[in-house]
Amino acid sequence: MKYGDMSVSELLMVCARGDEKAFERLYQRTSANLYAVCLRILKNEGLAQECLQEAYIKVWNHAARYQPERAQATTWMTTITRNLAVDTLRRSGKMAYAGEFEFENLSDESAEEDMFHSSDGRLLQRCLEELREQQRQAVMHAYYDGMTHGELAAHLDVPLGTVKTWIRRALEQLKQCLG
């Protein structure tokens, strides 16, 4: 089987053995998706490129720790990337909210439309739509803008306790809806 025929999960397992060609193919297959995650959270091209670079270094160094029985390869890589992006955002000491930068494809609406492309995404989309508007906004800002409870309270101008309740109930409802 050639590299081009391998799944992302197979490429990761081969990367764990130090195969640089597999790593290059993995990058070609996944970097556009992961760069979109970095851009969506950081909303700054320079920071997003640094984030992407760090994400792949981490993937390369930790490929042997990937456990296919526990998570899909793309989910594992996305989690690494998103955590790095959120950490970068928090280290930079300021939030880069959508609207402050001109990225046409970074609005909440485009992200929501794109979720429809997979069956999991369609189900999650439907479940998000069933949330109360304030709850949904809080979840979206937390996920895409990396806001903590405190930052959400300040951004939405509501008490901290209210935000915590919105988030907790929203996540409980999402879990129930997703089954």
Binding site: E20, Y35, Q53, W60, Q72, T74, T75, T78, H117
Partner: peptide, 26 residues
């Protein structure tokens, strides 16, 4: 459960220099 929120974003090709920097480090 929440992965589709990230996986569903419109892909954006990163500049070629990012791969070169990664390659140099790995």
């Amino acid at each position: 459960r929440l992965a589709p929120m990230a996986n569903g974003l419109t892909p954006v090709e990163p500049p070629a220099k990012v791969w070169k920097q990664i390659q140099a480090r790995t």
